[in-house]
Nucleic acid binder design. Structure first.
Lengths: 203, 203
DNA sequence: CTGCAATCTGACCATACGGTCAGAAAAGGA
DNA sequence: TCCTTTTCTGACCGTATGGTCAGATTGCAG
């Protein structure tokens, strides 16, 4: 019941989906240890034993959430196209990443929680992450060396994009508290980041 | 025993300090719910009942840590000097903030944990935070309008500084995993951020 | 040294939590 | 309909955890 392949019956599909949705809600808001099976079960509209009928353990639910997460999270970076226009490609990446923070703040916070704790349940995925980043860093470096982009450390450029976009999801309370009502943080951030990266990368 | 004024006896000073140090270690690594009094007591070299002789509850320890944190954390921003040279002032702020991430990564993660959970125990401090940020945003806006700084949204500039500097502490595992061995993330970040903000703010 | 206050401890308690299990209820195919 | 499989539940268990307490131990002023 805790395997990765798609659930067979209609009921299984519905309930597994409800559980993962509920778990995302609770895990992202409370962290792994802070979340309880009772909370998740209540949020999913199921009883706790029934929840454990679909997933072997709390760990298993969390693991399944994380498993899907990295792929989704890194998809925009994967699409960075070496054949595209350097500045446009990076700006497009920034915008897509910011859009993900807006549309999936819970996923962002789930990821942040995991990283804050030292990525104990994501450690094995880190080498793959490094490989992808190194590859794309190579693309960016080549653009710089070809004079199509201002010279810049590609790894830290990528870190900067992550930090700046995820910040709006992970620290949303703070951002909203500081801006006060009547602001759309993500809209403003979009404009600001366009400007920032344009100035940073202009040859 | 859980009041704010300085402990009287030598033993109290020593043990309260040890407890807060241990609690910072554990809370920042595990989050509030993830941390246990036993862990903190062990880390501090005290028994759990003895720990509770000095602090009324787990909450009280956490509260005392947070109480001191915001002040320390915002000190560099407070020092942003309206009478200084705009670019130099902001670059100095960035460097000091990055230095804090390097020297106090646990404090950074404690703060991040709190924000991720929606700042339940810091909510009352947010208005004061907004006031400070608004004040400094005013300074930056004035610099921009006087043509001494490239035009830029001051609030989001401050968010950017927070995001970029704290990222290296909060996501340290990820940063190190991606860079691989033989890198000093903070040294490299220092150079990168100097460049970034110089290009962003140049008139 | 004496006696009081400060410090510390082992034993204990109540609750919360992850997880189990026997069996009831519902689905679904024949 | 009948029968098998899937889905679901109430009751329960063991452990972890925050916290209490009576009393032992230690520090220290006189």
């Amino acid at each position: 019941m805790d395997d990765g392949n798609p659930a067979r019956t209609r009921i299984q599909r519905r309930n597994r989906k409800a559980i993962l949705e509920a778990a995302l809600e609770v895990f992202s808001a409370q962290g792994f240890r802070g979340a309880t099976l009772d909370q998740i079960a209540a949020e999913a509209g199921l009883s706790k034993p029934n929840l454990l009928y679909y997933f072997a353990s709390k760990e298993a639910i969390h693991a399944e959430l994380l498993a899907g997460l990295l792929d989704i999270w890194l998809a925009p970076l994967r699409e960075l196209d070496p054949a595209g226009a350097p500045q446009a490609e990076i700006l497009r990446y920034v915008r897509r990443k910011l859009e993900m923070s807006r549309a999936m703040p819970r996923e962002s916070r789930l990821f942040a929680n995991e990283m804050l704790q030292g990525a104990p349940r994501l450690a094995e995925a880190l080498p793959g992450l490094k490989a992808l980043v190194d590859e794309k860093a190579g693309v960016i470096r080549a653009w710089s060396e070809a004079g199509r982009l201002a010279p810049v450390d590609p790894h830290h450029l990528i870190f900067a994009i992550w930090a700046l976009t995820q910040h709006y999801a992970d620290f949303e309370v703070q951002v909203r508290a500081v801006l006060g009502p009547g602001h759309d943080p993500y809209d403003e951030a979009g404009a600001f980041l366009d400007l920032l990266f344009a100035r940073l990368l202009r040859v």
